[in-house]
Amino acid sequence: MQQANVLTGKAAIELNHVSYSDEGLDIIKDVSGSLPEGKITTFVGPSGAGKTTIFRLLNGLISPTKGDIQLFGENIQTIEPTTLRRTVGIALQDATMLRGSVYKNLAMPKTLQNQELKKEEAEHLLTQVGLDASFLHRDVTDLSGGQRQKVSIARTLVNHPKVLLLDEITSSLDRVSTSDIEHLIQHINKEFAVTIAWITHNLDQALLIGDYTWVMMNGELIESGSTDVLKNPVNPRIQEFVKGEWQ
């Protein structure tokens, strides 16, 4: 079922026949594809398709069982893990917070490098993600789901990643917050030329913000290319999925 990679241009990330198994279960099956540099690629597909696993592979939290992943032409297995994870940042769906203040969370990437995050920088980050600077000293337990997600994105940005992986970051947000985040991510993409990969269940969102898209099902990359893949699907499995999602 594997389609040829139809993306053009320089790739920030390239996967070559990547498979990942855990406890005898094949979670990712021979996936080859790329994320074009400086573009937004959305990942769509039903739950359990392996999208989050791909992100964990890209961030280096797990390693492929077979195949290799290239980051700007370099095999990620040869890149020092902490460097890889700072270069390929990830914001997860559950927006895990560390106990304490918003500042403590924002400063953590710097703390891990024995550096300090200046208060002005932290306030600037907060306003960038649409939160008031007064949030800085709030306890994270006082934040709503949307606010936590914004703090999570701001925290990932502290490392100035070249690639940003966003795993369903707007799934728990209201329409206004979702729109704020979409604009923010587009701004980050354009302003800082950050390559973005975004998992979403919302096909409208995939069409709105994505330059490219990956459609994944059952651990396989069914198709990748421009978002036209979602508008006029040729593959019957994608047709069925898209039909189900629009209904």
């Binding site: 961030n59 939290l61 893990p81 902490t82 460097t83 994870r85 700072r86 940042g89 990830i90 997860l92 559950d94 895990t96 560390l98 953590m108 990437p109 891990l112 490098q113 925290r155 990932t156 490392n159």
Partner: peptide, 16 residues
């Protein structure tokens, strides 16, 4: 476990 993985994902070492 989630906090530990978060710190790893942000570029922390296992010790951190």
């Amino acid at each position: 476990q989630k906090e530990t993985e978060l710190l790893l994902s942000l570029g922390g070492t296992p010790k951190q």
